[in-house]
Design a protein around this nucleic acid. Structure first.
Length: 328
RNA sequence: AGGCCAGUAGCUCAAUUGGCAGAGCGCCUGUCUCCAAAACAGGAGGUUGUGGGUUCAAUUCCUGCCUGGCCUGCCA
């Protein structure tokens, strides 16, 4: 069947995925498979720019791959691969680094953030992060890249690199990728104020047990003005309600919306309903995942197969790149 | 390569002349609340970067090494 083109997206191996990862990326990855030839990379090289210890790298890769595959990313239909297993990437990265303007790299907001976050580890790779990202996208001749708005400058940078390369070497080898801005719901953590993230420990893992999920939901911060059971609440500022809108039926959402405001239901009732719906939502996923987790070798085989398929595309691109440059 | 400075709890930092390594924030538990938050009470968390040395005793003094920052050079 004819698809609209090729999509590449990568995620750093952060281990077991949480609701933010799922709603922000994975769900979208699964949906895109219908219309595009997708390549999903576990970008371990990018992870090295911030990781100071790599002892969990392999396990984090496995855990994330399990979440991806069990969630519906289909390795028959898409390519699921490990970034570092395609050596051509390093080659293209080096070549692109000669075209990449340093001033632009150091001006990017993400780089400035990292300077603030890890002033003791400002490495060369950190500056070149967007170059490596561009290399990944361009290596596979991606037509589109699904990203959140925060990644927009990086995609724009990749487009400019492709243009610069093509102009400098008088070729049309590299394809400027379209930015496929996905409307990512801003998923807040259980603290109700900051973005859900593992490092803030305000996350809920999608592969968590029903008990663990319920426990974490009960810990969620609600409308602080609703102190007593008899007080009316305001769902508009309550993250529990936001989650209801994702995991509960329209009828239940309406019920919560009405009953919370007139103290018809309490937060405990509200949270129990949410936890129940979340657990129901992820039940089939968790069953599939548990099955897959019994055979970790199979997962690594899938990743290896994906990397091999990706390499075929990469080799073709690199032949064209070398030819365009006029390398002997 | 040389010179100077720094490294202490998850984070930011204290610790008198060399004398039991502490605080704030964060984290966990409890009280209180429908839950959560807030408040209060309690708790965990450390080979003081690391190996030697001096000393009755080293976070503190000496020294090798590691890491980071600033400066001066050398090579490509």
């Amino acid at each position: 069947m004819a698809k609209k083109g090729r999509v590449f997206s990568g995620a750093r191996p952060t281990g077991r995925q949480h609701l933010g990862n799922y709603l922000g990326a994975i769900k979208n990855y699964v949906a895109l498979q219908q219309d595009y030839d997708c390549i999903y990379g576990i970008v371990d090289l990018h992870a090295l720019t911030t990781m100071e210890t790599t002892k969990d790298l392999k396990n984090n890769t496995l855990e994330m791959a399990l979440d991806w595959l069990a969630a519906g990313i289909d390795p028959q239909q898409s390519i699921v691969m490990i970034q570092s297993h395609v050596l051509e990437l390093a080659n293209l990265h080096t070549i692109l680094s000669m075209v990449a303007p340093l001033g632009k790299l150091t001006d990017l907001p993400t780089f400035k953030e990292k300077i603030r976050d890890q002033p003791h580890n400002i490495n060369y790779g950190l500056v070149g992060y967007p170059v490596l990202m561009a290399a990944d996208i361009l290596l596979y001749k991606s037509d589109a890249v699904p990203v959140g708005v925060d990644q927009a400058p990086h995609i724009e940078f990749a487009r400019e690199l492709a243009r610069s390369f093509n102009y400098r070497y008088g070729a049309k080898v590299l394809i400027e990728p379209e930015m496929k801005v996905t409307q990512i719901p801003k998923v807040l953590g259980i603290d109700g104020e900051r973005k859900m993230s593992k490092s803030l420990n305000n996350h809920i893992e999608i592969a968590a047990t029903p008990e663990e999920t319920t426990k974490r939901v009960m810990m969620m911060v609600t409308d602080p003005n609703r102190k007593l059971r008899s007080d009316p609440g305001n769902p508009d500022i309550c993250n529990v309600f936001t989650m209801h809108k994702i995991f509960s039926s329209p009828e239940e959402v309406e019920m919560v919306n009405v009953e919370c405001r007139r103290a018809g239901i309490g937060c405990v009732d509200c949270k129990r309903l949410l936890a129940k719906n979340m657990n129901k939502y992820f039940e089939p996923f968790r069953e599939r995942r548990a099955e897959m987790a019994k055979r970790p070798d199979d997962i690594f085989d899938i990743l290896e197969d994906g990397s091999n398929r990706a390499r075929v595309i990469a080799e073709q691109t690199m032949a064209e790149v070398r030819d365009a440059i006029g390398m002997p």
